[in-house]
């Protein structure tokens, strides 16, 4: 399954991140994960949200430059070696990971690792399926919340 990540072009100046989170809050968009990469005077904010299309349109309305990208959100076990299994698998199959980040789903049980594999999307999906690794799409990502709360 495919998930969608939004990338926002951001100059490296105060308030850019706050602007993005402010817009998402106003639009009642839930953030699953956020990463920021910067280079000198500009950077890219990557967000994984429960409603990618909706988030994209309100961010663009606010004048931001947004790009939507297909990524794979892999469910891995939240224990030592959980991530290693996935990474080794990708390596064995010659899949290059451009950008990656993770977040915990259920502490000590499940985590999600998001990988951007560029044009190797189909191949990655096949490899993961063969290894019986679960992937989440946008809908599944938006349904995470209740489980999350139940753990508390």
């Amino acid at each position: 399954m495919i998930a969608y990540q939004l990338s926002i072009f951001a100059e490296d100046k105060p308030g850019r991140l706050a602007k993005v989170t402010g817009i998402l809050k106003k639009g009642k968009i839930n953030l699953r994960a956020i990463t920021i990469s910067t280079s000198d005077t500009f950077g890219v904010i990557n967000v994984l949200v429960d409603d990618p299309e909706g988030a994209r349109s309100i961010l663009e309305e606010a004048g931001l430059t947004v790009s939507m990208k297909e990524v794979i959100a892999v469910v891995i076990e939240d224990r030592p070696g959980g991530l290693d299994r996935l990474v080794q698998l990708l390596l064995e199959n010659g899949i290059n990971v451009g950008n990656a980040y993770g977040f915990v789903l259920e502490s000590r049980k499940k985590a999600v690792f998001v990988v951007d594999v560029g044009d190797q999307l189909e191949k990655t999906q096949r490899v993961l399926k063969e290894a019986s690794l679960e992937t989440l799409d946008a809908k599944a990502l938006s349904a995470i919340e209740p489980f999350h709360y139940m753990n508390y």
Binding site: Q5, S39, G43, V44, S67
Partner: peptide, 13 residues
Amino acid sequence: VQKEFFSGDLKQL
């Protein structure tokens, strides 16, 4: 930067 050019890739920028 041209809007259409932006693909979310920092390396490209």
